[in-house]
Design a binder for these strands. Structure first.
Lengths: 366, 366
DNA sequence: AACCGGAACTAAAGCGCTTTAGTAGATGAG
DNA sequence: CTCATCTACTAAAGCGCTTTAGTTCCGGTT
């Protein structure tokens, strides 16, 4: 690979500018103690040599990694079922890149032990200065873990219960309420809910918002099925809903993927959306706009969320005491999957439930 | 945050084991020169102190970052329109985590300048030992850039033209050919193609495969529209196809997102899939199975690809000369969106094209 | 008996920065 | 004029590892 040319170091820059390495370091880190003359000469030398400091040496000397960690414990299928991660990370990066930080990603699947090790490994080796905690769970074990490891962190979401770390979140309850209120306003009295995967705070908060609106509107508590945020899970939950004798002319899904899976199941059962059943999602996945009918859902400013989260974590790393709170905003996207309930508002499903296990047909060919 | 307890260092481990730090380092790095007795005492001390080496010090001393970089220049919308990234990264991580490496992610959007800086920054600061190059372009400017920076890399995909780096890819041409051959076998004679975003090698290779099969089958070259891998782009390309007077009873889309967007457009134009038009995708996004009709597509073993890519890059970093080639496998998923062409095989579209700009209706509410 | 080669082990010198502790010189107060 | 104070600047000591260059010891050769 050719002879290893000696790296340009801070000493070279200092020599060129006719000052000490300390002075260069001071300029680099924007510390005072360097006169204007020396400062500009150093700047010049920096530019001329195109030098950038070795992150390795910097990390060792300053006891900082200049990186933050993101450990993803979702199964792959959930990772990109929506734009959430891409958009969130884009928001995070917009902050990190201009602050000289970088993002260490760790994907650990669903194994709880692997998740613990993921955090421990990054923390123990000092590869990151702090963590962004995504997909908060109701009794989130990571809080205790990270406290034990004595690592800073910021929770991304509305913590349920005690949270030793600051948090920032787009509150999903108001838009969820407005979604359900919209259905109520259309005349719906039997509104079901397909929840997200158990244990996550956004599963709980969306469900709670749905229940609260029904209650406040004086409506009977609607039927409920547990989903898992996947299209498959949404389809399965919808089948269970159809098989039960519960009445529902609207189904509020905890996210778009499930809603789209559910819509297919309803279609297979001979039900029309929205004529027989109204359907709502949450997330605004791109394909929701191209579903038949287009899916009524909620869109959130996820980039802003990521931006705020990164800003907050860096501030916390800098010793600032940052204030937890809501960020960004969420808007309803009223599209074609919702309408008034069928005229005979009290009748049950016009068609009996489909047989379970009947997914979309797939023939595999080698 | 309490008094900063002094970090456990390699010296502490050495002292506990009654040996020198050098010996501990040797054991850690699996170098010879440590007797079995000393070795086991060191192992014991390691475990007792629960020590893990400081990645920072290790990186500085050994001139290695123990990290590889992934720079994503896709716009966010493309990042998670499919499971590709999540699955690929999961495959990569399965290798990195057990080899003590980590993944530095950089998301730079679509700005070419930002992309260059992304690579430069990670390389110049020595934050990574090498790069995985995703989304290869036809004349990929990153090859020259990285050569200039003298950084190892591995191309993930089939390079078009000169490639100074080893590459590993799932060849998408054979499955694409089989897809088109399947349509030909069903009796289709007018097969259109909606391409991916211009400039990417997988856009070119999929298009080439489609053309080759038509040619070999003695069929007229089908109409073609440029897409961009998004549902919106697929819908737009489909509208242009409908507006042109070209004949097509099957449309081969370069990916699922476009196919699903296209199917909605066809539906809006009053065309039935697959009765009037057959549709195929590529990627096997989860929602494709829940579309109406379920989408015929291609599924790839993306995890295996990620696994192979990471293994290959680490090998290259270790000085091995690794062999470029094909990895993983791709399978056809024949579902409901393809069937024999309409009986009157020569007639044009039964319905005139939709008016342009007519996307799915969306009312925004604050 | 002298010699050699190899294995086991270690002291010490970095890696390229940051930070501490200090010097020199300018400025202002008394 | 002296002393204290402040600013500009630097030498040198780390940060916690890896690696180099030895040293010691041992068994096998001649």
């Amino acid at each position: 690979m050719g002879p290893t040319e000696p790296r340009v170091t801070i000493e070279d820059v200092a020599a060129r500018a006719g000052v000490s390495a300390t002075a260069v370091s001071f300029v680099l880190n924007e510390r005072s103690g360097v006169g204007t003359v020396a400062r500009s000469r150093i700047r010049k030398a920096l530019a001329e040599l195109k030098w950038s400091p070795s992150a390795r040496a910097r990390a060792l000397a300053s006891r900082k990694a200049f990186a933050i960690g993101l450990v993803l414990s979702r199964p792959a299928i959930l990772l990109s079922s929506d734009l959430f991660f891409a958009r969130f990370i884009a928001g995070v990066e917009s902050v990190l890149s201009q602050r000289g930080y970088s993002l260490m990603l760790r994907v650990v699947g669903e194994d709880a032990q692997a998740e613990v090790e993921g955090y421990q490994w990054l923390a123990a080796q000092g590869r990151v200065d702090g963590f962004l905690l995504l997909d908060l769970r109701v009794e989130d074990p990571r809080f205790a873990l990270l406290e034990r490891l004595a690592v800073p962190a910021l929770a991304v979401g509305l913590p349920a219960g005690r949270c030793p770390y600051p948090w920032l979140a787009i509150d999903d309850r108001p838009p969820m309420r407005r979604l359900v209120e919209h259905l109520v306003g259309l005349g719906h009295r039997h509104i079901a809910h397909v929840t997200g995967r158990a244990g996550f705070v956004h599963t709980a908060s969306r469900r709670a918002a749905w229940r609260a609106v029904l209650e406040e509107a004086g409506l009977p508590p609607g039927p409920e099925q547990t989903g898992d945020f996947t299209a498959y899970g949404g389809a399965a939950a919808t089948k269970r809903l159809l098989q039960s004798d519960a009445l529902a002319h609207a189904i509020v899904y905890a996210n778009d993927a499930m809603a789209l899976g559910g819509m297919q199941t309803l279609r297979e059962a001979g039900l029309r959306v929205p004529d027989d059943v109204s359907v709502t999602g949450f997330d605004d996945v791109p394909l929701g706009a191209y579903a038949q009918p287009p899916l009524t859902t909620v869109t959130q400013d996820v980039e802003a969320w990521g931006h705020a989260a990164a800003t907050g974590l860096l501030a916390a790393l800098g010793g600032a005491s940052i204030e937890s709170g809501r960020v960004g905003q969420a808007d309803l996207l009223l599209r074609g999957s919702t309408s008034a309930p069928p005229a005979d508002g009290t009748r049950s499903h016009p068609i009996p439930a489909t047989r379970p296990g009947t997914g979309p047909a797939t023939r595999g060919e080698r």
